[in-house]
């Protein structure tokens, strides 16, 4: 471990970025074909996804090698940290856009449709509509299916909140383990976190099934369903990514890749996980509860 490296490590040419570009391009192009019912689409998506998976192994493999062979000095580490921080800021604004949309729909579009405020004539167009949230009956009751029963805040969502919160605790516990160089505490904490994340995802999947099956809450049931799935769906996607990264980190921790002074990868994933946690809390309050 030579963090006293004098030179900032500038890698030589790498093939991973261009593979990343090809993978991403192929994936989205395939998706475009797929959603337009062109039969080749799914295959192209699969190809792109394989490329991306390959790239992750390769690129991160290189980074891990370089890191393990001590090429990174403290300044490189700082670059990684700052880069991750800015990335998470960007993600935060991504979710902010969806929360903002939810706010707009509930506080501005709904009253407007119902003929409130100084622009109060829109109700002329929707005679039988009355605004309420959760919106179970859409203005046009034929074009969109109606919700039978809105999603409550108790039950699964409540359990999920507790799960994610405890996963934050186990992750911090793992971090303490890392700080005092207790590999057992680190690995065990990480494993607990991954398991909690996986259980969360299981519950979430069941909740979706229940919503479709029993509550009539679907993507097609108007803007309540739309915002519900958009917010919880993107969050779920982030949980999935986070859980995968956590799993990788667990393996690396077990292999002894991290020391109490050098563990950027661990921290990056931890930040990400905590971020996902915080988003969930906001979700719980604004989507399920209020």
């Amino acid at each position: 471990m030579s963090s006293s490296q004098e030179h900032y490590y500038v890698p030589d040419g790498s093939r991973w970025p261009i593979i990343a570009v090809c993978g991403m391009f192929t994936t989205v192009f395939g998706t475009a074909l797929w959603i337009n019912d062109i039969s080749l689409g799914p295959w192209i998506v699969a190809l792109g996804a394989l490329g991306i998976a390959y790239l992750f192994f390769g690129w991160f493999g290189d980074v891990i090698d370089e890191s393990m062979s001590g090429k990174y000095n403290a300044q490189v580490d700082t670059s990684f940290r700052q880069g991750m921080m800015w990335f998470i800021s960007s993600e935060a604004f991504f979710f902010a856009a969806f929360f903002g949309s939810l706010y707009y729909i509930r506080m501005i579009a709904m009253p407007w449709l119902d003929g409130e405020g100084h622009l109060g004539s829109s109700h002329l167009l929707w005679e039988n509509f009355s605004a309420s949230w959760p919106l179970v009956n859409t203005p046009d009751t034929e074009k969109y299916t109606q919700v039978i029963e809105p999603m409550g805040a108790g039950g699964i969502p409540m359990i999920n909140t507790l799960l994610l919160l405890s996963s934050g605790v186990t992750l911090t516990w793992a971090h303490w383990g890392l700080k005092k160089d207790s590999r057992f505490q680190l690995v065990f904490g990480l494993m607990l976190t991954v398991i909690l994340g996986a259980v969360f995802m299981g519950f979430q999947a069941y909740e979706y099934y229940h919503a479709y099956d029993a509550l009539g809450l679907t993507l097609n049931s108007g803007v309540y369903g739309s915002t519900f799935y958009m917010l919880t769906g993107f969050h779920g996607m982030h949980v999935t990514i986070g859980a995968i990264m956590l799993a990788v980190i667990t393996v690396r921790a077990a292999k002894g890749h991290f020391s109490h002074e050098k563990h950027f990868a661990f921290e990056a994933v931890a930040w990400y996980w905590h971020f996902v946690d915080v988003v969930w809390l906001a979700l719980y309050v604004f989507v399920y509860w209020l």
């Binding site: 902010a96 949309s101 859409t138 203005p139 046009d140 993507l219 739309s226």
Partner: peptide, 28 residues
């Protein structure tokens, strides 16, 4: 990210039946 989010919502309105931007479903 706001723009990316916005066009993603467009994509969903176009193909997956959501109604973010359709008053008939309560969107705008």
């Amino acid at each position: 990210p706001a723009f990316a989010g916005g066009v993603t919502m467009l994509l969903f309105d176009r193909h997956f039946g959501t109604s973010f931007f359709d008053a008939a479903g309560g969107g705008d």
